[in-house]
Amino acid sequence: MSAEKITTQKVNFKVFRFNADEDYLPYYENYTMDITSEEVVLDVLNRIKWDHDGSFSYRRSCRHGICGACAIKVNGRSTLACKESMATMIEYFGNDITLEPLSTKRAVKDMIIDKADFWDKHASVTPYLVADIDECPSCENLVSPHDAEELNEADLCIQCGACHYACPVVEVNSDFFGPAAFVAAYRFESDVRDSDGERLINVNEEKQGVWDCAKCYECAEVCPKDINPIEKITKLHQMAFKKGVAKNNVATRHAVGFLHSIKRNGVLDEGGLVLYSEGLHIVKHIPVALAMFRKGKIVPPWGITKSDKLDEIQKLIKSSSTVKF
């Protein structure tokens, strides 16, 4: 038990309210409460329902960070309500706290959202083990501790949706699988027992797959289980190259193009990279390139200042490369 004294402070809550059956538009209800340093966000949700308005609705179940039901947004930050202490939220945001569902546009009633898009995407990455397993095995199917480590804790995901609804790409591109689905895909792709041949190809397809990740690290920041989804997304990129399923498209050429550029110059040849990635499609960049050229923002290939000691870089590329495309 902590020996620290329990403290109390007044907090103003602005709470998203909406009932899809009755309301055209959502509105916000204000509540002011004394919050102790021991309370978690879920305690606040409970107190709103129990002390202020019995019709207030939210999902909850285990209260132990296992079921993933109670994720909401606190001041725009995806949060697992049963795990997040109010003290931390006050430290982050001060005494004016806004409680909203994970996605306001998907709200059904108050904090409850329609999570169908999340589950549809989760289901479409084959989130289960695909293996030819003897129905009556004579011994256990052993996985060594070393092989189990390859999962990198992806199996800890509780499908709370915190990362999915924090991802800016999910909001813009409805085809994008999103970080949680990629974690599920990685969890089984990295399992030595799995033999599915389609999953990795599927999560590497343009528009829906890992290549549309904007690398903003929002998912890593919000995950209540510290799974670091973008690390798994990066590993899925790498796996695609290692297992030879990476297609020759603008996204993969963009990644490989860095190697070519570094090999040649040490530094990046920005124009060369775009040309290598886009091929003939480079014409669509001409208007912006011209505007940049007029402002002295384009350096021709022959004008690039190469890295000093380029031979060292080239030597390292030769000796340390682990992938071929």
Binding site: K215, T234, H237, Q238, F241, H254, A255, V256, G257, F258, L259, S261, I262, G266, V267, L268, S307, I313, L316, I317, S320, S321, T322, V323, F325
Partner: peptide
Amino acid sequence: ASCCGASHLQDYDDFL
């Protein structure tokens, strides 16, 4: 110094 890889070389060859 060389290019840092800009998170894209990292998608291709982590060790390098």
